[in-house]
């Protein structure tokens, strides 16, 4: 068993997990809940083992480094943090239907990592610039933030769907959308996820700046990746301020969560493939 097999299996387990959550939601099959959560936890453990094994394999190849250094590895880690954050949310707030909206993000990330022809899955050695503990800290913190933003977007989509329906103020088993949590609850969770994500995005930008300074003597050079991460940061800062100081909530915040996540995706993906810059190593 090698790491690519484990990570390949992960893609399908997350797909299956997505289907289970969707079944719980669509057929109101609450009794499937515990089994679904257990299955997702197992899928998560498989992925964890896959990542750990990949790490070990890199050492066996004599080029040992944490598996967080190219596009493939970071997308895999992204999926991992999404599930971790989602499971935490499910455990803490006991709302399982969120899974039907959040777990697909992890599946899509894994599917993209596994099947896109644009990204190489090979374990490659690190060029000198990437040999830094700050880089590891940078990637981990950024992706915790991104995962929280992904879940916030899942919640925002859920909010907008429920809000548009006739049963927007109902929380019971009468219709499909009535089984979703109360709008105020979804709104609150969206906000909490964004707050959590914002803190980690901030730490991610800062560790990136410290890394750049230790490698090149410039903590900020306005390259497209840095600038886009700052744009993303501005969008979430606007969102949090609009809520705290102007009392925004509901639909507006839901849309801002989606816009913010679009900016995350652009920072992460668009800059590598559409714009160019220092961070273009990710496109290998």
């Amino acid at each position: 068993m090698d790491s690519s097999q484990l990570l390949g299996i992960t893609t399908f387990t997350y797909l299956f997990s997505t289907i289970l959550y969707a079944v719980i939601f669509i057929f109101r099959a609450k009794n499937l809940g515990p089994a679904t959560t257990a299955f997702t936890c197992i899928a998560f453990l498989i992925q964890t083992a896959g990542i750990a094994l990949r790490w070990q394999e890199s050492y066996q190849m004599g080029i040992g480094h944490a598996p967080l250094t190219n596009m493939y590895e970071s997308v895999v880690f992204f999926a991992w943090t999404i599930i971790l954050f989602y499971l935490f949310l499910e455990w803490k707030f006991k709302v399982r239907v969120i899974g039907a909206f959040a777990v697909p993000f992890a599946f899509l990330a894994m599917a993209y990592a596994s099947f896109s022809s644009g990204i190489s899955q090979e374990i490659s050695p690190l060029i000198p610039a990437l040999q830094s503990n700050w880089l590891i800290a940078h990637v981990i913190t950024c992706f915790i933030g991104y995962a929280a933003f992904a879940v916030a977007t899942a919640l925002a989509i859920m909010y907008l769907i429920k809000n548009a329906s006739a049963s927007r103020n109902v929380t019971d088993d009468s219709t499909l959308l009535a089984t979703l949590p109360k709008l105020t609850v979804i709104d609150d969770l969206t906000h909490k996820s964004m707050v959590f994500g914002f803190l980690w995005l901030t730490v991610g930008i800062i560790t990136g700046a410290v890394w750049a300074n230790s490698a090149w003597g410039t903590y900020w050079s306005w390259d497209p990746k840095e600038t886009w991460s700052l744009i993303t940061w501005f969008i979430y800062a606007i969102t949090l301020h609009a809520r705290y100081t102007r009392g925004w909530g509901g639909k507006r915040i839901a849309w801002l969560a989606i816009i913010g996540f679009a900016s995350v995706i652009f920072t992460y993906y668009g800059v590598n493939f559409i714009l160019s810059g220092l961070h273009s190593y990710g496109s290998q």
């Binding site: 306005w222 497209p224 600038t227 886009w228 700052l230 744009i231 501005f234 969008i235 800062a237 606007i238 301020h241 609009a242 100081t245 102007r246 800059v271 714009l275």
Partner: peptide, 24 residues
Amino acid sequence: SVKLALVNLLILAVTSIFGTVIQQ
């Protein structure tokens, strides 16, 4: 005013895009 902060942050976010599209 916080309104000014919101508008200003929005302008900063939008205008910052130019420099990522146009080579500096």
